[in-house]
Design a protein around this nucleic acid. Structure first.
Lengths: 351, 351
DNA sequence: TTTTAGCACTCATTTCTTTCGAGTGCCAAA
DNA sequence: TTTGGCACTCGAAAGAAATGAGTGCTAAAA
């Protein structure tokens, strides 16, 4: 996309204007508010050409121009500049994210709350992807006859647990014995390599009849697998209803309907992350705009996501989902700083 | 409220009609669809009287009547009859609620999903209120230096846990020792009686320096207190956008805004429950209609809640939040059956 | 070749009227 | 007490007209 200088300026001015006013931008507005030194007729010609290039579009014949998805794309890729937040903003965000934190979950929750409140959009946080991690501890605690708590501890300090049912007449000691044996043989094993088979073969000698033992092992297995499940928090869905972009009830409904399908959002964010890794792009943030997003009801939205780290191998995503008509640079600087604060917070928690 | 028979019939017909059509009901409709044997003029007179009694209102002079909040109240208190669900419906609900359940949380989740999908409204479930329960186990598991998992087991089989930070140089043995002592001295104690003081005095002899010990105890205390915190799941908020009652964006926004404040809903449901207990009413369900609800944005909603039981002393609430213009008897029969299924499911889990 | 002034034209939006009809209240007769 | 009849009300729907921001195009100026 080789745009001459003036075209760049025009596109930039149109995006900047439209994003804040939500009104199609005409040649006259452009002159008035963006001090161009050429006449409106010239701008009209430029706009016509930008439209031919697919960067602008007209809602209808006699209206001004608005950016197309491609226009936004060009804007975020080459035109905008992302400023740092002010000291005051940074302090505010950092203090909110670090407010009464005792586990990573709290950090994520605080981060989404902050992001959503500050932007007015939906924010999201995903629990870390655990492929790269390995098991460090596995405890089966008997709670009462027939009931046990399986505690799974993974590298990078992730702890998950699950309440399971076990055969009624197994004793505390028997459970403890199974727990110890499994832990001894599996600790240090990458999560991906743990299957029902490896689990079953981890208990070599035991005085417990096979069917009972297998039931316990199966439950332990489900607990481990569940630890691997991605959860996603969304926050601030209702804020989208305040945006003019979703003032049509139908749009709003489709949007919230899709968002309420946790799995869809999580899946799509994973896809974005995978693309970024595959293409080797090492930007601190990832953007998907409008039609680039394949989810129903999100045609007028943009995803901006970023990656937080837990230790060396484990990472997860946070981000926001807003209207594609958003002030990208502001949102990005927020997200960048939230990411940084989050990473620091996680590191501090694991010290 | 002493209504003569015909007035009752008129009110009932109007509620039944309005609830399904969402159109103000006029005398002509009433004659046509609800086979009255009197003339429309007579019905007009009846309606005028019902309006004088505050049971009906007119959206504007030349429209039919709609029920007022008081009218709905009269309807649910004395006019409607709640039918049982069909065998087919019962089977469907039961199988969905019991689908892949391994802890109470799963049951609650399934119940809300089912309720919301079946009614098209928002459903809610609250974790059980634990006042009446006592501590049966408390384990502090060291996860890695500086980090421990506090597992709190309460009567009625409730298990909660929390990841906490502990002084870095405490050893596994030291933690285990504290854990054992605390558990020995506190188990059997009602949750309400556990304070930082009782907790501190539970560890009589220990070789661990006080400041460190106190830090651990403090964290254990926060874990116990957190177990007592009520969580609320809401599900299906987006469904409200499909209702004509919230086709005005402003209403929808206020509604979802308030609902996104978990604390508000939980607090209000608690209030309903407390009222029911205080007034000694032992209905299986509780209803709040329209203006009776003191939450902003819920003036056009009704709450229908019910109580599920875990063991003898512990209980929680589930229910739905829908438009006050709803088919009360259908929703109530759903809720009644869900409550029953839930209670059965909980009992089965604890066997 | 590029820029600009000027002008006719387009079309969504707003505002004002008009029409339509469902529904009412009330009166007088049954 | 009930009913038929009738004048009246008022929101909703449909149409008509005015408004005005913005366009594309042409022809002259730079």
């Amino acid at each position: 996309m080789a745009l001459d200088n003036r075209k760049k300026q025009v596109l930039q001015a149109i995006v900047d204007d439209y994003v804040t006013t939500n009104e199609p931008v005409g040649s006259k507005t452009l002159i008035e508010k963006h001090n161009f030194t050429v006449s409106s007729a010239t701008l009209r010609n430029e706009m016509a050409e930008l439209e031919k290039l697919g960067l602008l579009e007209k809602p209808h014949t006699s209206a001004g121009r608005i950016p197309s998805d491609k226009g936004y794309r060009e804007y975020v890729d080459s035109l905008m500049h992302v400023d740092d937040l002010s000291e005051r903003e940074r302090e505010d965000i950092a203090s909110r994210i670090n407010d009464s934190v005792s586990e990573v979950k709290d950090l994520l929750r605080n981060a989404t709350t902050t992001l959503s409140e500050n932007t007015g959009f939906v924010s999201l946080a995903m629990t870390p992807r655990l492929h790269g991690s390995y098991l460090t501890q596995l405890k089966i605690l008997m709670i009462e006859p027939g009931k046990a708590l399986v505690v799974v501890v993974l590298s990078a300090g992730v702890v998950k647990d699950k309440l399971v049912r076990i055969p009624n007449f197994l004793t505390q000691d028997q459970i403890a014995q199974i727990s110890n044996e499994v832990e001894r043989s599996l600790s240090g094993k990458p999560l991906d390599e743990i299957t029902l088979i490896t689990l079953a073969s981890s208990v070599k000698e035991s005085k417990i009849p096979d069917p009972l033992l297998n039931q316990v092992l199966y439950e332990a297995y489900t607990a481990i697998k569940q630890a691997d499940k991605l959860d996603v928090y969304l926050e601030g869905e209702h804020r989208m209803l305040s945006l003019p972009d979703f003032s049509e009830l139908g749009r709003a409904r489709d949007l919230l309907g899709t968002l309420s399908h946790d799995g869809m959002v999580a899946g799509y964010v994973n896809e974005i992350e995978a693309d970024a890794v595959a293409s080797g792009r090492r930007d601190s943030y990832m953007i998907r705009i409008g039609q680039e997003i394949s989810l129903e009801g999100l045609e007028d939205c943009s995803f901006i996501t970023t990656t937080y780290k837990m230790g060396d191998t484990v990472s997860g995503n946070i981000g926001i989902i807003g209207p594609k008509r958003m002030e990208y640079s502001k949102v990005i600087s927020q997200i960048n700083f939230v990411r940084k604060t989050l990473n620091d917070g996680i590191k501090k928690l694991s010290e």
